[in-house]
Design a protein around this nucleic acid. Sequence first.
DNA 1: GTAAGAGCTAACATCGATGTCAGGTTCAAG
DNA 2: CTTGAACCTGACATCGATGTTAGCTCTTAC
Lengths: 123, 123
Amino acid sequence: MRIGELARRTGVSERSLRYYEQQGLLTADRTPGGQRDFPERAVDRVIRIQELFAAGLHSKKIARLLPCMRDADGGPSEIATAQLVDDLAAERDRIDRMITELVNSRGVLDEVINTASENRPDR
Amino acid sequence: MRIGELARRTGVSERSLRYYEQQGLLTADRTPGGQRDFPERAVDRVIRIQELFAAGLHSKKIARLLPCMRDADGGPSEIATAQLVDDLAAERDRIDRMITELVNSRGVLDEVINTASENRPDR
DNA sequence: GTAAGAGCTAACATCGATGTCAGGTTCAAG
DNA sequence: CTTGAACCTGACATCGATGTTAGCTCTTAC
């Protein structure tokens, strides 16, 4: 599929998709005219890339990580090196802490929202 | 307490603390010589500020939010306006989605890590 | 063949919290 | 009084994903 469709289906801008390809996160064939032709499974991949970005990983780390992930198709095409595993374990712990913080913050927001609703029954 | 101690106790750089004050997120008295003198409760407040930053809120929104939060001392000193509540509700939903994504990403990392440990019992 | 819509590259801009540095002032202990 | 640590302000730098624009090319339907 061409870049426009992939953008539409993932909600990610064309700009970002080109950037992902440039960073080695996505692979695309090219038409004879030089336009990108993404495989169907790029959709899932883009979504996972977005999630990893949201989790605070940088593109370089994602690039090392992706080949070690189980694909839609089957097993991973590479096994993570010990060094990468260490790295990912650290990220994992960071994400864990981040989840805790987010849950806290969500609670704070809920409290403020609820307090306001109680004191301001503008219905 | 002075800025160095607050930085040490919160793990937040002095630079950031000055920035927080400048953005209206923190209040500090001044010594006759012009040095900041933070109240004890600044410690908790800084930690909450950090969490809100981690949740993706910007300083301006945090500045509007903070006076509506329940303090260590007691009730909020302001009630959120309807407009702010709408805003916060949107942030809340965004945080919710972010948590989901983080949990997903954590799962992905765990899988890669586990796969590597199984295939590479370097112990 | 032509026109319109979609894609291409390259370059520059942005955002916001934080790092860093310079040059000066304050504080506290001796 | 002196000295070194801690603090002050102000300015500039950074990082990285993404937005934006310009100028050109490809694709496709007519």
